[in-house]
Protein backbone atom coordinates (compact mmCIF):
# COMPACT_ATOMS: atom_id res chain seq x y z
CA UNK A 1 0.00 0.00 0.00
CA UNK A 2 2.70 2.39 0.94
CA UNK A 3 4.60 1.55 -2.23
CA UNK A 4 1.51 2.34 -4.27
CA UNK A 5 1.25 5.71 -2.60
CA UNK A 6 4.88 6.38 -3.42
CA UNK A 7 4.30 5.54 -7.04
CA UNK A 8 1.32 7.84 -7.17
CA UNK A 9 3.33 10.65 -5.72
CA UNK A 10 5.99 10.24 -8.38
CA UNK A 11 3.45 10.73 -11.15
CA UNK A 12 4.30 13.94 -12.93
CA UNK A 13 2.41 15.98 -15.47
CA UNK A 14 4.16 17.95 -18.12
CA UNK A 15 2.73 20.68 -20.23
CA UNK A 16 3.31 20.53 -23.95
CA UNK A 17 2.24 22.98 -26.60
CA UNK A 18 0.96 21.95 -30.00
CA UNK A 19 0.28 23.67 -33.22
CA UNK A 20 -3.32 24.03 -34.24
CA UNK A 21 -5.21 25.88 -36.95
CA UNK A 22 -7.22 28.72 -35.48
CA UNK A 23 -10.57 29.55 -37.06
CA UNK A 24 -11.95 33.00 -36.36
CA UNK A 25 -15.60 32.94 -37.41
CA UNK A 26 -17.17 36.30 -38.17
CA UNK A 27 -20.89 36.94 -38.03
CA UNK A 28 -23.02 36.17 -39.94
CA UNK A 29 -21.92 32.61 -39.27
CA UNK A 30 -23.84 31.21 -42.25
CA UNK A 31 -21.73 33.33 -44.63
CA UNK A 32 -18.56 32.38 -42.83
CA UNK A 33 -19.46 28.70 -43.20
CA UNK A 34 -20.11 29.26 -46.91
CA UNK A 35 -16.62 30.79 -47.29
CA UNK A 36 -15.16 27.85 -45.41
CA UNK A 37 -16.98 25.46 -47.73
CA UNK A 38 -15.54 27.26 -50.74
CA UNK A 39 -12.03 26.83 -49.29
CA UNK A 40 -12.64 23.18 -48.50
CA UNK A 41 -13.93 22.65 -52.02
CA UNK A 42 -10.54 23.77 -53.36
CA UNK A 43 -8.49 21.77 -50.85
CA UNK A 44 -10.43 18.72 -49.82
CA UNK A 45 -9.28 17.13 -46.58
CA UNK A 46 -6.83 19.92 -45.78
CA UNK A 47 -8.01 20.12 -42.15
CA UNK A 48 -8.88 16.44 -41.77
CA UNK A 49 -7.15 14.93 -38.76
CA UNK A 50 -5.61 18.25 -37.72
CA UNK A 51 -6.41 19.99 -34.47
CA UNK A 52 -8.49 23.10 -34.94
CA UNK A 53 -9.16 25.76 -32.34
CA UNK A 54 -12.00 28.26 -32.52
CA UNK A 55 -11.41 31.89 -31.64
CA UNK A 56 -14.91 33.17 -30.97
CA UNK A 57 -13.96 36.62 -29.69
CA UNK A 58 -15.39 38.24 -32.82
CA UNK A 59 -18.37 35.91 -33.26
CA UNK A 60 -20.55 36.93 -30.30
CA UNK A 61 -22.35 33.59 -30.05
CA UNK A 62 -24.57 32.18 -27.28
CA UNK A 63 -23.76 28.72 -25.90
CA UNK A 64 -26.45 27.00 -28.01
CA UNK A 65 -25.10 28.74 -31.11
CA UNK A 66 -21.57 27.61 -30.25
CA UNK A 67 -22.86 24.04 -29.92
CA UNK A 68 -24.47 24.37 -33.33
CA UNK A 69 -21.27 25.75 -34.86
CA UNK A 70 -19.11 22.90 -33.55
CA UNK A 71 -21.71 20.45 -34.88
CA UNK A 72 -21.61 22.16 -38.30
CA UNK A 73 -17.81 21.88 -38.33
CA UNK A 74 -18.01 18.22 -37.29
CA UNK A 75 -20.26 17.60 -40.32
CA UNK A 76 -17.37 18.90 -42.45
CA UNK A 77 -14.90 16.54 -40.79
CA UNK A 78 -13.35 19.28 -38.63
CA UNK A 79 -12.93 18.44 -34.96
CA UNK A 80 -12.58 21.34 -32.58
CA UNK A 81 -9.79 20.92 -30.03
CA UNK A 82 -10.72 23.90 -27.93
CA UNK A 83 -12.31 27.30 -27.87
CA UNK A 84 -10.92 30.65 -26.95
CA UNK A 85 -12.40 34.11 -26.75
CA UNK A 86 -15.57 33.27 -24.77
CA UNK A 87 -16.47 33.96 -21.16
CA UNK A 88 -15.76 31.00 -18.80
CA UNK A 89 -19.47 30.73 -17.85
CA UNK A 90 -20.36 30.23 -21.51
CA UNK A 91 -18.07 27.19 -21.73
CA UNK A 92 -20.73 24.63 -20.99
CA UNK A 93 -19.62 21.04 -20.29
CA UNK A 94 -20.78 19.81 -23.71
CA UNK A 95 -18.34 22.11 -25.53
CA UNK A 96 -14.64 21.64 -26.18
CA UNK A 97 -12.44 23.01 -23.37
CA UNK A 98 -11.56 26.65 -23.05
CA UNK A 99 -8.06 27.57 -24.28
CA UNK A 100 -5.89 30.39 -23.01
CA UNK A 101 -2.47 31.79 -23.70
CA UNK A 102 -2.14 30.69 -27.33
CA UNK A 103 0.85 32.13 -29.15
CA UNK A 104 0.57 33.22 -32.73
CA UNK A 105 2.51 31.48 -35.44
CA UNK A 106 2.74 32.15 -39.14
CA UNK A 107 -0.26 32.07 -41.40
CA UNK A 108 -0.77 28.81 -43.21
CA UNK A 109 -1.57 29.09 -46.86
CA UNK A 110 -4.14 26.69 -48.16
CA UNK A 111 -2.52 25.01 -51.15
CA UNK A 112 -4.20 25.38 -54.50
CA UNK A 113 -5.95 22.29 -55.92
CA UNK A 114 -2.98 21.24 -58.03
CA UNK A 115 -0.81 20.92 -54.96
CA UNK A 116 -3.45 19.63 -52.59
CA UNK A 117 -5.35 17.05 -54.70
CA UNK A 118 -6.87 14.25 -52.65
CA UNK A 119 -3.75 13.46 -50.70
CA UNK A 120 -3.68 13.62 -46.93
CA UNK A 121 -3.27 17.06 -45.50
CA UNK A 122 0.28 18.36 -45.37
CA UNK A 123 1.88 18.24 -41.96
CA UNK A 124 1.87 21.45 -39.98
CA UNK A 125 5.23 23.18 -39.91
CA UNK A 126 7.18 22.14 -36.84
CA UNK A 127 7.28 24.74 -34.12
CA UNK A 128 11.04 25.15 -34.31
CA UNK A 129 12.30 25.44 -37.86
CA UNK A 130 15.85 25.00 -38.99
CA UNK A 131 17.27 28.35 -40.14
CA UNK A 132 16.62 28.40 -43.86
CA UNK A 133 18.28 30.69 -46.36
CA UNK A 134 18.86 30.95 -50.08
CA UNK A 135 22.08 32.36 -51.51
CA UNK A 136 22.13 33.73 -55.06
CA UNK A 137 25.62 34.51 -56.30
CA UNK A 138 24.68 36.00 -59.67
CA UNK A 139 22.72 39.10 -60.64
CA UNK A 140 18.94 38.73 -60.68
CA UNK A 141 17.96 39.99 -64.13
CA UNK A 142 14.91 41.94 -65.23
CA UNK A 143 11.90 39.64 -65.48
CA UNK A 144 13.32 37.02 -63.14
CA UNK A 145 11.45 36.19 -59.98
CA UNK A 146 13.00 34.57 -56.92
CA UNK A 147 10.41 33.23 -54.48
CA UNK A 148 11.67 31.65 -51.26
CA UNK A 149 8.97 31.44 -48.61
CA UNK A 150 11.05 29.16 -46.37
CA UNK A 151 13.42 31.85 -45.14
CA UNK A 152 15.97 34.55 -45.95
CA UNK A 153 17.31 35.42 -49.39
CA UNK A 154 20.81 36.79 -49.91
CA UNK A 155 21.79 38.16 -53.33
CA UNK A 156 25.47 38.84 -53.94
CA UNK A 157 24.84 40.74 -57.19
CA UNK A 158 22.27 43.32 -58.16
CA UNK A 159 18.53 42.92 -58.62
CA UNK A 160 17.54 44.45 -61.95
CA UNK A 161 14.70 46.78 -62.73
CA UNK A 162 11.64 44.59 -63.26
CA UNK A 163 13.07 41.68 -61.25
CA UNK A 164 11.57 40.55 -57.95
CA UNK A 165 12.69 38.85 -54.77
CA UNK A 166 10.01 37.43 -52.47
CA UNK A 167 11.20 35.93 -49.18
CA UNK A 168 9.44 34.51 -46.17
CA UNK A 169 12.23 35.97 -44.05
CA UNK A 170 14.59 38.87 -44.61
CA UNK A 171 16.26 39.96 -47.87
CA UNK A 172 19.91 40.94 -48.11
CA UNK A 173 21.18 42.46 -51.36
CA UNK A 174 24.88 43.20 -51.62
CA UNK A 175 24.55 44.87 -55.02
CA UNK A 176 22.04 47.46 -56.17
CA UNK A 177 18.33 46.85 -55.72
CA UNK A 178 16.58 48.27 -58.80
CA UNK A 179 13.60 45.93 -58.81
CA UNK A 180 11.11 44.82 -56.20
CA UNK A 181 11.79 43.22 -52.81
CA UNK A 182 9.08 41.69 -50.61
CA UNK A 183 10.23 40.30 -47.27
CA UNK A 184 8.18 38.59 -44.57
CA UNK A 185 5.90 37.06 -47.18
CA UNK A 186 4.97 34.27 -44.75
CA UNK A 187 3.72 36.78 -42.20
CA UNK A 188 6.88 37.38 -40.21
CA UNK A 189 6.69 41.03 -39.09
CA UNK A 190 10.33 40.98 -37.96
CA UNK A 191 11.62 40.40 -41.50
CA UNK A 192 13.75 43.19 -42.93
CA UNK A 193 15.20 44.26 -46.26
CA UNK A 194 18.82 45.35 -46.51
CA UNK A 195 20.48 46.57 -49.66
CA UNK A 196 23.91 47.90 -50.41
CA UNK A 197 22.50 50.47 -52.81
CA UNK A 198 18.84 51.30 -53.09
CA UNK A 199 17.31 52.27 -56.43
CA UNK A 200 14.32 49.95 -56.10
CA UNK A 201 10.81 50.10 -57.51
CA UNK A 202 8.93 48.73 -54.50
CA UNK A 203 9.70 47.55 -50.98
CA UNK A 204 7.28 45.42 -48.96
CA UNK A 205 7.26 43.62 -45.65
CA UNK A 206 4.21 41.43 -45.26
CA UNK A 207 1.19 43.38 -46.51
CA UNK A 208 2.84 46.79 -46.00
CA UNK A 209 4.56 48.32 -49.00
CA UNK A 210 5.96 51.52 -50.44
CA UNK A 211 6.57 52.33 -54.08
CA UNK A 212 9.63 54.25 -55.22
CA UNK A 213 7.48 57.37 -55.43
CA UNK A 214 6.62 57.18 -51.73
CA UNK A 215 10.20 56.66 -50.63
CA UNK A 216 12.30 59.67 -49.74
CA UNK A 217 14.58 60.63 -52.61
CA UNK A 218 17.52 61.12 -50.25
CA UNK A 219 17.57 57.37 -49.61
CA UNK A 220 18.20 56.54 -53.22
CA UNK A 221 21.67 55.43 -54.35
CA UNK A 222 22.76 54.68 -50.79
CA UNK A 223 22.69 51.67 -48.48
CA UNK A 224 19.26 51.27 -46.90
CA UNK A 225 17.18 49.01 -44.77
CA UNK A 226 13.45 48.58 -44.41
CA UNK A 227 11.57 47.20 -41.40
CA UNK A 228 8.13 47.24 -39.85
CA UNK A 229 7.33 49.57 -36.98
CA UNK A 230 3.89 48.32 -36.03
CA UNK A 231 1.92 48.76 -39.23
CA UNK A 232 4.27 51.28 -40.77
CA UNK A 233 7.00 50.38 -43.22
CA UNK A 234 10.11 52.34 -42.25
CA UNK A 235 13.08 52.86 -44.51
CA UNK A 236 16.34 54.37 -43.33
CA UNK A 237 19.83 54.83 -44.64
CA UNK A 238 22.42 52.53 -43.15
CA UNK A 239 25.32 54.89 -42.76
Amino acid sequence: MSSLICQRQSLTFRARSYMAFVFTPQPPIADWLADLDATLERSKGFFAGHPVALDLSAAGLTPPEITQLTASLAERGIRVLGIEGIAPHDATPGLPPLLRGGRGAQEIEIPEPAAASAEPAPALPPQKQEPASLLIDSPVRSGQSVVYIEGDVTVLGSVGSGAEIIAGGSIHIYGTLRGLAMAGASGNPRARIFCHRFEGELLAIGPHYKTADEIEASLRRGPAQAWLDGNTLKITAMN
Binding site: S138, R141, S142, G143, G160, S161, G162, A163
Partner: peptide
Amino acid sequence: EVSSVRDSDRIIGLLD
Protein backbone atom coordinates in the same frame (compact mmCIF):
# COMPACT_ATOMS: atom_id res chain seq x y z
CA GLU B 1 19.02 54.65 -72.35
CA VAL B 2 16.96 53.07 -69.58
CA SER B 3 14.37 51.14 -71.61
CA SER B 4 17.01 49.51 -73.79
CA VAL B 5 19.17 48.65 -70.77
CA ARG B 6 16.30 47.03 -68.89
CA ASP B 7 15.31 44.98 -71.95
CA SER B 8 18.93 43.88 -72.34
CA ASP B 9 18.97 42.82 -68.69
CA ARG B 10 15.91 40.68 -69.41
CA ILE B 11 17.58 39.12 -72.46
CA ILE B 12 20.73 38.31 -70.45
CA GLY B 13 18.50 36.46 -67.98
CA LEU B 14 17.07 34.42 -70.86
CA LEU B 15 20.57 33.71 -72.24
CA ASP B 16 21.41 32.32 -68.80
